[in-house]
Design a protein around this nucleic acid. Structure first.
Length: 453
RNA sequence: GCCGGGGUUGCAGAGAGGUACUGCGCCAGCCUUGAGAGCUGGUGCCCGUAAGGGCUCCUGGGUUCAAAUCCCAGCCCCGGCGCCA
């Protein structure tokens, strides 16, 4: 059974606790309990009426003459009653469904309580951060002295300025053509973008993932199964006059891939590495990161996605994070892992880690990877269950997890700030070079400033 | 986009107004030293402690006492034509 419905019926205290820790009202839980009770009551009533209707309908077949007319009269009346009762049931069901689906995922016990991203808890630091001498105090304070660092006396050019000054992207013309938060990526960064994608896909394929290039648009029905309703307004683009939405991440078509399926236990876990462009309205981000290619309406991303047995999902959560870490360690970019607190978690995930890269020019850690265990929150909506074998009764809903591997534009900003030389050249991480090697005109060691035109 | 054929339970196929059938697969029991064969019952979802009942023939509406079956709309698959990187 779906964990939220199970909790509503058998152990509401779990839901109260989860809601309290999120800082949300528990009133919705009480409403769910009440509606569920009413719905079951009404269902009983409806089934009784249906039974009576079926009995009468069966009688009509064999009845003759006057008797027949009488039975049909009665059956008509009962049929009307059934219709009425079914309508009431439908209303209750819709109400119950609406309430149940608006209950956020049940929070895992290891999620820290906090009101916003300032209260996320760093759990790990990796790499030696390059810290500009003026930022050292704040760095030490921010990291609680847990992170290694080296002091630099030159501050690199920030990624947003660098891409324009050094001629790696044209944001002005993109704004003219498509608006703010779009970009023309030019020359070396195009190759770098491809190399990052290839690097991540190659790694994940070797780790046992199936590489997938999914549809970039989805129907509403599938989409509503993978995300919160509010996202439709804030992040997702709709195609005019079509029942189609541009994907905000390949997580979404990957999650929906197996909707209305019963998966066999022995084929689990299913591991997918999705690669696709991502389209986001960023409607809720006014004024944030308006410059450069850090926060944009369109970017490329390699994503990890897992369908697994419920008892294995917490293990997979750690393993997805480990994959992401290995990829970023390979790039040589210092980062930290934060355990996202209740206030910053969102309603889909039961627990989430972010990997935040150190950005020397900004003197801050910035989000590069999000790694979530969605337990059965998505799989219930998408109706993805598992059974011992095809044809056998299902045992329950699978768990789904997703984690960024590499989002290319963000990775590029981190590379620009971490590996910038004094002359503006940017050293290319060694792990990417073999993916650039086959392309004769691609840069191999450094990305070089070139002011085009 | 147009014209035709189709979508039935894990799979294959029947059923063309009277409440889902046959075969295969799977599970349980009987039989057997054991396995197999054979026989019997079962096989999805929901409510119910249970007894039991309801729902389900791609989806949503409609007609009817009664819809897999008739009507309307949509989705998907196959074939043909058109268009097309």
């Amino acid at each position: 059974m779906w964990s939220i419905l199970k909790a509503v019926r058998e152990n509401p205290e779990i839901l109260y606790e989860s809601q309290r820790r999120r800082g949300f009202s528990v009133e919705i839980v009480d409403r769910a309990i009440e509606l569920d009770r009413k719905w079951r009551e009404k269902l009983r009533e409806v089934n009784q009426l249906r039974k009576r209707r079926n009995e009468l309908a069966r009688k009509v077949k064999d009845a003759k003459g006057e008797e027949r007319g009488k039975i049909i009269q009665e059956a008509k009346a009962v049929s009307e009653e059934v219709k009425k009762a079914e309508e009431e049931l439908k209303k209750l069901e819709a109400g119950l469904e609406e309430v149940l689906l608006s209950i956020p995922n049940i929070i895992h016990e290891t999620v820290p309580v906090g009101k916003d991203d300032a209260e996320n808890v760093p759990v790990k630091y990796w790499g030696k951060a390059k810290v500009y001498f003026e930022d050292v105090d704040s760095f030490v304070e921010m990291t609680g002295g847990m992170a290694e660092y080296e002091v630099t006396d030159v501050k690199p050019v920030g990624h947003a300025d660098a891409v324009e000054i050094f001629g790696w992207a044209d944001l002005e013309r993109a704004a003219k053509v498509a608006g703010a938060r779009f970009y023309y990526l030019l020359n070396d960064l195009v190759w770098l973008d491809f190399a990052l994608t290839m690097y991540a896909l190659d790694y994940l394929k070797k780790a046992g993932f199936t590489v997938v290039n999914p549809p970039y648009m989805m129907r509403r029905e599938a989409y509503s199964g993978v995300t919160a309703f509010s996202d439709f307004e804030e992040v997702i683009y709709k195609i005019e006059d079509e029942d189609l939405y541009l994907i905000a991440t390949s997580e979404h078509p990957l999650a929906a891939m197996h909707m209305n399926e019963v998966l066999e236990e022995r084929e689990l876990p299913l591991l997918y590495a999705g690669v696709s462009p991502c389209f986001r309205k960023e409607a809720g981000a006014h004024g944030k990161d308006t410059k450069g290619i850090f926060r944009v309406h369109q970017f490329n991303k390699v994503e990890q996605f897992v369908f697994c047995l419920p008892e294995e999902s917490w293990d997979w959560h750690e393993r997805l994070l480990e994959n992401a870490e290995k990829l970023w360690q390979g790039l040589g970019i210092p980062y930290r892992i934060v355990n996202i607190c209740t206030g910053d978690l969102g309603i889909v995930a039961a627990k989430k880690y972010d990997l935040e890269a150190w950005m020397p020019a900004q003197g801050k850690y910035r989000e590069m990877v999000s790694c979530s265990n969605c337990t059965d929150w998505q799989s219930y909506r998408l109706n993805i269950r598992f059974a011992e074998e095809r044809g056998k009764p299902s045992k329950g809903f699978v768990h789904t997890l997703n984690s960024t591997a590499i989002a290319t534009t963000r990775a590029i900003t981190a590379i620009i700030e971490n590996f910038q030389q004094e002359d503006g050249r940017v050293e290319i991480p060694k792990v990417l070079r073999k993916y650039l090697e086959p392309i004769e005109s691609a840069p191999k060691d450094f990305i070089t400033p070139t002011k085009t035109q």
